[in-house]
Design a binder for these strands. Structure first.
Lengths: 175, 175
DNA sequence: AATAAAATTTAGGCAAATCTAAAAATTAAT
DNA sequence: ATTAATTTTTAGATTTGCCTAAATTTTATT
């Protein structure tokens, strides 16, 4: 069983891996988690001992198959809870992230499954991010960055990548 | 801010105080929380330092006004989440306790309030236990123990005090 | 009331997660 | 290719929550 903190590390590594596409540095993890590189170094060794990451000192980390599975499950739970808060409890979309950071660590596979069904097997969260299915597969949303949409061409905004309340608060909601 | 563990101590003390009506012993807390008396002794001193309990060595503990408020809030959250799991996610009533033990520690007053409204400001959880309102006041349910109901008199069962899955599982649901 | 039993607290330790400061390794720059 | 700068790791501490074993205090028994 992983601790709350360990789950956060796996999620951070997973998300950095998506963005940066290369080796993940100790510093980038530290920055993302607002901690020190020393602490990250320590934790990576623990996660390596638990076979959650492949770790070579001074070279960087990547997730093992098992680590990736755990990470995706955390992301799935985070996004499902965000959607629940937004759709069912009528939170604003800028308020949901912080609470979902806590809810994503609740342990119960049955709960995730029932929440998924309750929300109608959704494909995206309130920020437009894809929600993986029970197998950990992300839906293909066929999106392109707004910056590359041709001039005078119609387009539908389906998501934002900046989740900070300050940014989200600029808009009432998507679409 | 209280830790997850501290919240569990306050809840345990609160519930023991309701049952036993006298001084709460170190041993009874240890038993309820499945830990050792030594650990409890330690924690009581920490909680006393935080003004959450009145504690006199070798004599027992009681909650301060502040500690009681926190404890009731945890109970409130626990019961609201249980009801959510049961009513909205269709869990069996014997499965909800364990998950609610985790959910009761999610920090967000807004969340509790919105959940309360979402569930229709309920008065009882799936076990028939009263849910305190936003002020921490428990609704008066006007109940008597089944054992003192007169012979040949009609009565409606509104709750059970044993929350263990084994016991609850004997019945499909209340009423 | 003295002693035995039970309850409680203290002492000393351990693991997790964090930090700062120092050391080591890698990368960049002249 | 040395040296300087940066990144990463190790070392040594701290806090929280927990344990066992020993000491202390209270309660019960004869």
């Amino acid at each position: 069983m992983l601790t709350y903190t360990e789950e956060n590390y796996l999620k951070a590594i997973f998300q950095l891996q998506e963005d940066e596409k290369g080796k993940i540095s100790t510093n980038s993890i530290a920055e993302r988690l607002s901690t020190t590189p020393a602490t990250v170094s320590d934790m990576l060794q623990k996660l390596a001992a638990k076979k959650m990451v492949n770790y070579l000192k001074y070279y960087g980390v990547s997730l093992t198959a098992g680590g990736k599975k755990k990470a995706i499950n955390v992301v799935r739970k985070h996004r499902l809870w965000e959607l629940f808060l937004y759709e069912k409890l009528e939170f604003n979309w800028d308020e949901v992230h912080e609470i979902a950071e806590q809810l994503e660590h609740i342990q119960s596979e049955t709960l995730v499954q029932k929440l998924y069904d309750f929300l109608g097997k959704p494909k995206t969260d309130p920020h437009g991010d894809p929600i993986p299915d029970e197998e950990g597969v992300f839906p293909d949303l066929n999106t392109i960055p707004l910056a590359v949409v041709a001039v005078r061409k119609d387009a539908i905004v389906i998501g934002v990548s900046d989740h900070r309340p300050d940014f989200c608060n600029t808009y009432k909601r998507l679409v």
